[in-house]
Design a protein around this nucleic acid. Sequence first.
DNA 1: TGAATACAGTATGTATACATTTTTTCAATT
DNA 2: AATTGAAAAAATGTATACATACTGTATTCA
Lengths: 250, 250
Amino acid sequence: MTDPIPFQRDQSQADRALLGIRDMVLRGEFKTGERLPELVLVDLLGVSRTPIRAALQKLAEEGILEAAQPAGYVVRGFSEAEIADAIEVRGTLEALAARMAAERGLRRPQLEAMADCLDQLDELLAEAVPGSDYLSQYSQLNGRFHQLMVESSGSEIVVRALARAAALPFAGHNAFVSIQGRIPGSLEILKAAQRQHREILEAIEARSSARVEPLVKEHARIAHKNLQLVLKNAEAMKNLPGSLLIRRRP
Amino acid sequence: MTDPIPFQRDQSQADRALLGIRDMVLRGEFKTGERLPELVLVDLLGVSRTPIRAALQKLAEEGILEAAQPAGYVVRGFSEAEIADAIEVRGTLEALAARMAAERGLRRPQLEAMADCLDQLDELLAEAVPGSDYLSQYSQLNGRFHQLMVESSGSEIVVRALARAAALPFAGHNAFVSIQGRIPGSLEILKAAQRQHREILEAIEARSSARVEPLVKEHARIAHKNLQLVLKNAEAMKNLPGSLLIRRRP
DNA sequence: TGAATACAGTATGTATACATTTTTTCAATT
DNA sequence: AATTGAAAAAATGTATACATACTGTATTCA
């Protein structure tokens, strides 16, 4: 009698390649603009060229690499303006999702799941002591709320579009959470975000599509504020994963 | 002395695979939900598995295929609601692009290029005789206008997001042009679209971001109207590329 | 008859050999 | 010293062999 449910499939070489390359790029082990020769990656990861190639293609789709001419891939750098645009795109699509959720109306279980998520966030933020490691839990709950909100649009097309927009570095909803605690007033930022969460949920519950749209857009712009704070703070930059992909001036 | 500018690079096997598979899928040579075994494609296209695999991965990103469990790819079908959502996403992102264009303001050459494009469209529609093949020219000019509008956002991030959203079948700006002429009042639809083009350009020129956003969203919804017309018209369906991917009742 | 299992066939995952293209190096010539 | 050219090195494109996992069928046993 073997396990009827395969718990965790043996990680494939393709997964290893994808995770490994992404990790190396975000750690800054290749400079922006630098080529990623397949054979070098083969040596570094102990995986053959085939899964490496698949991973490179995926990471180019994801946005952290770009296809080079006439062939190959290079690490992509992001200007501050590009990051701001990526955040704006994410906010725009989240606003669309929330508007659709408000228009169609949600069932009680969905609303309760979101409310429960916000209750847990309230509790977490109330007890939060600067220095304790509440951040990973915050990330998780924050991510869950956003996920629930987007899925409540009921549209897989929108979910997909958003997943791709949020895959860009620094564009996701948790992109700047890791640097909270390194900048002054960071807990206050999280609390303000949480107040917006409440307002968003209220608007969806009230089926007020006209209200929810600007609320969600404004919520996403917190990320933009955080970006500007980080750029002024060398210490915080060190704690921002992938910060080496940010180029100050080109 | 060889040509300094390579005119048209020899089409690679990867290109052949990508174009070939996309074409077969849109022609309906595989039913929705049907698997696309790599070896079958190897036989059909005369290309080895390596470029086939790359193409399958790209087409899954593009949206017309989806990864199957536990492996492989199947043809993806689209419900009417999903197509409507894809159009809405496209319209939302185009509206964002236009708003950004209006906010930053355009240089004269950009405005002139767009105006020139609209002049040509006016001329084309004025002389358009039902039955003549003005449609391919319309597609081209319409595509160019949209391209110019989106690029005038000045944001490569937005351009990329839009390209991906518009890659879904029936979501692009020219998705329903091919069926014009098969449905009553089709020329009038194109003329109405052109009037919206003029208003959009005026709003961008006037840097009225508040006006341009709803204008562009509404413009995209023409595609939604066309979708509903097509679904009621069996004759028009035959002329819609990829129509076999639409499932009436999933 | 029904269920379980073994097995063949077929699918994709992975590695790698070979082909082609691109880049680099270095020497020869002006 | 600069430039050109050819040869070498290295990179990616492509094909394919082999490994592994899945699927369906037939056979065997209860």
